[in-house]
Design a protein around this nucleic acid. Structure first.
Lengths: 129, 129
DNA sequence: GGTGCCTTCTTTCCTTTGGAGAGTATAGGG
DNA sequence: CCCTATACTCTCCAAAGGAAAGAAGGCACC
């Protein structure tokens, strides 16, 4: 890891290798399968409890859901509200930052919907060789 | 992969669950750390050879680079050109589909650049509790 | 002829990550 | 007194991923 020095402002192209490395690290963390699916679920439903999330994000294990939510909370993407009652009740919702990330990913979901058949055809053609 | 769930229910406000499942699967495959970084490298540099990609995508192992490129080629995102010379020369470039995916991810990169400091501040605040 | 080189994978071995399922704490209901 | 419901937490095992050596095969050098 390079030491985080402060340096001059860089144009939007961002040729600064340190910024690029940080962006790559952030991309690597945010472009996680489970993070995306949790983000999608919270975007669609607003406020969700732990078990509701576990049901919506089909295939996720409890361990990964906990871990993903902790990470997203640490990154400031989700807000966690604990109601001190028995049985425990915890609610998750996106922060403003999380919602903005969801909007940024909007184009990717649209791409996936629009190009599903093209990807499937490419796979069939590739496998048939 | 777990067995695909069948639901006869068709909510009017959302898509066909089969389409949604396929989109989720595609998202899960495309939203891979290495896929994104390879996509970024090819977007920025156009045509790249194997070793050039390995150098640009810092941290990737040869196995993962090969695997990621095969997968992207299978999905129709990358075109692979083999020049039958010695020593071997293989060039990789994005297909039109790959470029369109890169454009779809453009918003995510902009988000990452724009919100780097916000994420870092959120992490510091979270860790300092 | 033999040796080593060059490049793009491929294979082997080992560490890390992720999944399945049981365990934990707590209070109210039966 | 035990069962249930909830949000984790822990343990064990399988799968994914990283490091490094090997394969292939014409070519230059000795």
């Amino acid at each position: 890891m390079p030491s985080p020095e402060k340096k001059a402002h860089t144009p939007p192209e961002s040729l600064d290798p340190r910024v690029e490395a940080l962006v790559n690290e952030l991309i690597g963390r945010v472009a996680d399968k489970w993070t995306l699916l949790v983000l999608e679920a919270l975007e669609d439903h607003g406020i969700l409890r732990f078990t509701e999330l576990a049901r919506l994000v089909s295939g996720i294990s409890q361990k990964m859901l906990t871990q993903t939510l902790r990470q997203m909370e640490r990154d400031g993407l989700v807000h966690r509200t604990v109601h001190p009652v028995i049985p425990p009740k915890v609610e998750y919702r996106l922060t403003e930052l999380g919602r903005s990330l969801g909007e940024a990913f909007c184009g990717v979901w649209q791409w996936a919907e629009a190009n599903l058949d093209r990807v499937e055809k490419a796979r069939t053609a590739f496998d048939g060789r």
